[in-house]
Structures are given as structure tokens and as C-alpha cells.
Amino acid sequence: MHYIKFLAVFFLIVGIKTNLSAQDLLKGKKIYETRCLVCHQADGGGVPNMNAPLDGASNVVGKDIARMVRIIKKGYNEKVALDGFYYSNAMTANPDLSDEDIANVLTYIRGSWSNKAGKVSLAQVKAAKSKSH
């Protein structure tokens, strides 16, 4: 009996967790479509020589979450060297996105197309922000 209760609670937690992250992904996808897609394209492939790809990009699936948070928040206007190519276009800042929005869109970007990197939490975004100030 205890065993069954334990299992039920376990599945509830797992269920909620999966459910939550699926919702986060959906929220992230929506932000991606309205803010990012026009330059980074539907398949995250970017535009050769202009807008950097997100799909398969080493620094998108990498560990420097703070850098990504900073770029989304403040934009970027330097020539980006990424995986052997250069990208020249300026990226728009998104000062109005909330920390939660940023966590969701980063989770979406890092887990979409061929990307298999982990979820970005609200705490990670907050920590990144305190570092960049």
C-alpha cells in the first residue's frame, strides 16, 4: 500500500514536472516566434554571414548562460565569430522581456532542432543578471 502511495506521489511529481517544462517550452516557443524567428529563422539556422545560427551553435548549447542572457537583454553589435564563420548583423535588445521569459526562450532554443542542452532556470537568469551589473 505504501509502495503504491509512493508510486502515485512519484508519478504526480514527475507528471507535474514534465507538464511544467512542456509549458515552459511552449511559452519559449511563442517568444521565439515573435522576437527571434525573423532573423534566426524557423529552423534556428540563422542566415549565412549575417545572423548567427542557434541550431547546432556551440555557444548556444554551451555553459555560459550569463552571456546568452546578456545578449538577449542588451542586444549585440559586434562581428560574431562562431564555429568558423562570422556574422555581421546587429542584434536587437529585448529590455522588456522578464527573467521568466528569458528562461523560457533560452530553454526553447537550447532544446530545439538538433540542440539537446539543458533547461535554463529562473534562478540561472537572475544569477546571470546580478553578474552583469
Partner: peptide, 10 residues
């Protein structure tokens, strides 16, 4: 073409 990177030639 839905993405420029898929184009064989430009």
C-alpha cells in the same frame, strides 16, 4: 526556401 542556409546556391 524557408531558411537561407538550406539553399543549395545563392
Amino acid at each position: 526556401v524557408t531558411n537561407p542556409r538550406k539553399a543549395k546556391a545563392r
